[in-house]
Amino acid sequence: MQDNESVWLARAQEGNAEAFSRLVETYQRPVYNLCYRMLNDAGDAEDAAQETFLRAYKSLKDYDRSRPFPTWLLSIAAHYCIDQARKRRMTIVSMDDLPYQELPDNNPGPESAMSRKEEQGRVRALLGTLTDTDRAAVIMYYWYEFSYEEIGEALSLSLSAVKSRLHRARLSMAHEWMDHQPQTGSAERTPHGEAQSPAF
């Protein structure tokens, strides 16, 4: 897989779009997930993910092969989503007031649909309390299990800034949880650092 990726990367850097489309297939999930969690709308997330890959393809010649490709790609996605979220805020609309496009539910049955909707609502509410950059840092920390250094590299922040942002974000989300007291759920994913991220 890693070898294939290197080959595709090398070919893509020579201008081969077909090779880059293999990388798109490989990384579409993490990039789309980051965009969706940042923008909270399936349509906007699709646009942002497509734009991310387009920007990555255009600036592939400048990509430093010593840097991990997923970190570089997610860095482009995060910066783009932060810009989009700022532009969106220029219209003076709160993220919570936005009529967001829901994702199609693949699980049949009204109970699972309801449960999924509630879960999405809770995650949305938690992330909604954060600033754009803090949200990007939280997403990278929880979904992609990036280290502080990787988050700093992806978001162009110092190590202390990452720690302080994550500290502030966790406190803010805890207060949000305390204010609304949702029912407790069971963990499906492993905590940070114990296993490889399922996002990749």
């Binding site: 789309y32 699709e46 387009l54 805890a174 759920g185 499906e188």
Partner: peptide, 30 residues
């Protein structure tokens, strides 16, 4: 408790997948 629940909620949240044919749509966009 709140921090534990937040961690649990975020770790349990699934990775959202795009609609099928994402790479083809990207090629068309390119």
């Amino acid at each position: 408790v709140a921090l534990r629940e937040v961690d649990r909620e975020l770790y349990a949240a699934p990775v959202i997948t795009p609609a099928p044919g994402f790479a083809n749509r990207w090629m068309r966009r390119l």
